[in-house]
Simulated assay, not measured.
Amino acid sequence: MTASLLSAPPAYTLRQALLADRERALTQLYRRAFPPVRRLVQRQGGSAQDAQDVFQDALVVFYEQVVGNKLVLTASASTYLVSIARHRWQHELRRRARLPHEALPEGVDMAAEETEATLGPAFAVLDYVERLGTKCKNMLLSFYYFQQPLAQIAEANGYRSVRSATVQKFKCLERLRESVRAAFRAETIEY
Rank of each mutant, 00 (worst) to 15 (best):
M1W: 12
L5H: 07
L5S: 10
S7H: 13
A8K: 07
A8Y: 11
P10V: 01
P10G: 00
P10K: 07
A11E: 13
A11Q: 08
A11S: 15
L14T: 08
L18M: 10
L18D: 07
A20F: 02
A20T: 13
D21L: 06
R22S: 07
T27D: 11
Y30H: 14
R31E: 15
R32Q: 15
A33R: 10
V37Q: 00
V37W: 01
R38T: 08
R39I: 00
R43M: 08
G45H: 06
G46F: 01
G46Q: 00
S47V: 01
A48N: 09
V54R: 01
V54C: 05
F55G: 00
F55I: 07
F55S: 00
A58E: 02
A58W: 02
A58D: 01
L59I: 02
V60P: 02
G68F: 01
N69W: 15
A75N: 09
T79R: 01
T79Q: 03
I84A: 00
I84L: 04
R86N: 05
R86K: 11
R88G: 00
Q90R: 11
Q90I: 06
L99R: 07
P100N: 05
H101R: 04
E102C: 03
L104W: 03
G107Y: 03
D109Q: 10
E113R: 05
E116L: 07
L119W: 06
L119C: 05
G120V: 04
P121C: 11
V125K: 12
D127F: 15
E130S: 12
G133S: 08
T134D: 14
K135Y: 11
C136H: 07
K137D: 12
N138H: 14
L141K: 09
Y144N: 11
Y144F: 14
Y145C: 13
Q147T: 09
Q147K: 14
Q148Y: 14
P149Q: 10
L150T: 08
I153H: 09
I153V: 12
A156W: 00
G158I: 03
S161G: 06
S164P: 06
A165W: 03
K169Q: 12
F170Y: 13
K171T: 11
K171M: 08
K171Q: 14
C172Y: 04
L173C: 05
R175V: 05
L176C: 09
R181Y: 11
A186V: 08
T188V: 15
T188M: 13
